[in-house]
């Protein structure tokens, strides 16, 4: 059996600072990390691999600049068996459409895959589009907001998915794309030094657009359907009001405030 886990390296959001003059994010010196949603997806894949009796190969797949190798190294340490980085100037500037075209072609290249694990979204773009688009390009079913994968065999997977009302358990045919949503309090596996050293010896490949075939214009900025007109951060919120009184007084103050503002 084969699981492909798509991962993205993103700026560490806890470290982000905004240039006050231009309103844009300062990227220099900001460390990059593995997108937390993808890390969760990888953790689910590794857990599932440990549970099933059949041999499973986990392939970590990423599209990004050469530095994204670092995120893949981490995946190899956490438990991926091999890794592929799609790196090529031709891929640069891709929107979600071009990204999903690139990823789905790479997955086809990797070979027969039972489950494509993806994060529900990436913490930098937050579109949640790439996973479903990959499923569409591949012509396979998709499960989104998945918090747990219970079991898998040669034809089906059973997964738990979060909805507005609660959870649903779904049995679905494979191959399938599963977009994973971390549960509150989820603590990812911490790779130990032995695993990190072992990861160094695992197979790692870099592919360019030539490895995937097709015309360069289908990738990257040229292959993108959407155009970013402007990036800006929302104006900072005001200071806010802190009501710091005994409950009875505080509630009264709050109610008065709501009334004055016409909220109630």
């Amino acid at each position: 059996m084969r699981f492909v886990v798509c991962v993205k390296q993103v700026p560490d959001t806890t470290e982000i600072e905004v240039d006050e003059e231009t309103g844009t994010i300062i990227r220099e010196g900001v460390p990059s990390v593995l997108n937390a949603f993808d890390e969760f997806a990888l953790n689910l894949a590794v857990e599932l691999k440990n549970e099933v009796e059949e041999d499973v190969e986990i392939v970590a797949l990423s599209m990004g600049p050469p530095q994204a190798k670092e995120a893949l190294n981490k995946c190899l340490a956490i438990g991926a068996d091999r890794a592929v980085l799609l790196t090529d100037m031709v891929f640069a500037g891709a929107d979600t459409w071009a990204t999903s075209v690139t990823l789905s072609r790479a997955i086809k290249n990797i070979g027969k895959t039972d489950i494509v694990f993806m994060g529900q979204e990436a913490s930098d773009g937050n579109t949640a589009q790439v996973g479903p688009e990959v499923a569409a390009h591949m012509g396979i079913p998709q499960l989104t907001f998945v918090t747990e994968v219970e079991s898998v065999n040669n034809s089906h997977v059973v997964a738990k998915k979060e909805t507005d009302e609660g959870f649903v358990r779904i049995k679905c045919e494979t191959p399938v794309m599963i977009a994973c949503m971390p549960t509150p309090g989820f603590e990812p596996r911490i790779p130990n030094i032995r695993e990190i050293m072992k990861a160094k010896k695992k197979e790692y490949q870099e592919w360019s657009h030539e490895d995937l075939g097709g015309d360069p214009s289908e990738y990257g900025l040229d292959g993108s359907e959407s155009v970013v007109i402007k990036t800006y951060s929302p104006p900072p919120k005001g200071e806010g009001i802190i009501v710091d009184d005994e409950p009875e007084v505080a509630v009264k103050k709050l109610m008065d405030f709501f009334e004055d503002e016409g909220i109630l």
Partner: peptide, 16 residues
């Protein structure tokens, strides 16, 4: 690269 990962793992472990 490996040393960066050691560091990340150790600090994450310590945080927990």
């Amino acid at each position: 690269e490996e040393q960066r990962l050691f560091k990340e793992s150790l600090l994450e472990w310590a945080e927990r």
